[in-house]
């Protein structure tokens, strides 16, 4: 038992830091990349659509492990300035990989917004940008939440594949530990539990966001409007 508490747990906790760091950065960048690429996919510009399409085609058409190997080992051969630390390469891989899947999610949500809403905005004199900000993004964002968090969970799990480019995240640490003393059961059970806890946290965040936005429930008026209501009664 002592090797578990003295060696395995510290190792896993050390790996946990990297796992969380890469996952959080990866998810943030992936969301940014995916939003832009997803918007481009349904935009009027042929060039934007084309670029976005090719990006998604390549990323969805190759395994994450291959992408990691390519970015870590191959790209620096052509472009030495792209020689990244394994951790930085890991963030890049997670970002561009998840970004491609998020792009498709975002495109679907944007296209799902009722055209009548946009038309109404236009008839009120709003610019396309105002329509996007006030009338398209709010419903699209609500629609996108479940699929988006699904992708976040996948991104978090995918960090374990980065062990292929020797990122010292949790899986790498568990493998290293078990290769020293062959205690597979405790190493990989603890590893699994760590992932389960991490993903449970993500699920809780999802529930919180959904409740905040009222995704599953009929929307309730916000509290700040109460003042207007009170004024009205006073009249």
């Amino acid at each position: 038992m002592s090797s578990l508490t003295h060696t395995l747990l510290p190792m896993l906790l050390q790996g946990l830091r990297l796992t969380i760091l890469i996952a959080v950065l990866g998810i943030v960048f992936a969301f940014a990349i995916g939003s832009v690429a997803g918007y481009a996919l349904q935009s009027k510009s042929k060039i934007a659509r084309g670029v976005s399409f090719i990006y998604i085609w390549i990323i969805r058409g190759t395994p994450l492990v291959v992408q990691a190997l390519y970015i870590y080992y191959v790209l620096p051969l052509f472009m030495p300035f792209l020689e990244l630390s394994s951790m930085a390469a890991g963030v890049v891989v997670i970002s561009i990989n998840s970004g491609a899947f998020i792009a498709e999610i975002v495109r679907g949500a944007l296209q799902g917004v009722d055209g009548g809403q946009k038309e109404t905005g236009a008839s009120l004199g709003m610019t396309n940008f105002q329509i996007l900000i006030h009338l398209v993004i709010p419903p699209a964002f609500r629609a996108v939440i479940p699929a988006l968090f699904n992708q976040f969970i996948i991104a978090l799990k995918d960090t374990s594949l980065l062990t292929i480019i020797v990122v010292n995240e949790m899986t790498q640490m568990a493998m290293r530990y078990s290769s020293l003393n062959f205690r597979y059961i405790e190493a990989y059970t603890a590893l699994a539990v760590f992932y389960l806890v991490l993903i449970s946290v993500l699920v809780l965040i999802q529930k919180f966001v959904e409740r905040k936005l009222g995704v599953n429930a009929p929307v309730k008026p916000k509290l700040k409007n109460l003042t207007a209501k009170l004024k009205l009664k006073a009249k």
Partner: peptide
């Protein structure tokens, strides 16, 4: 848009913004 500011339109399907009060 300057014309649309002066010309209101009411649609058959109302098209209220569902997330807004």
């Amino acid at each position: 848009r300057s014309l649309r500011e002066e010309v209101g339109m009411v649609f058959q399907q109302f098209n209220l913004f569902p997330l807004k009060t």
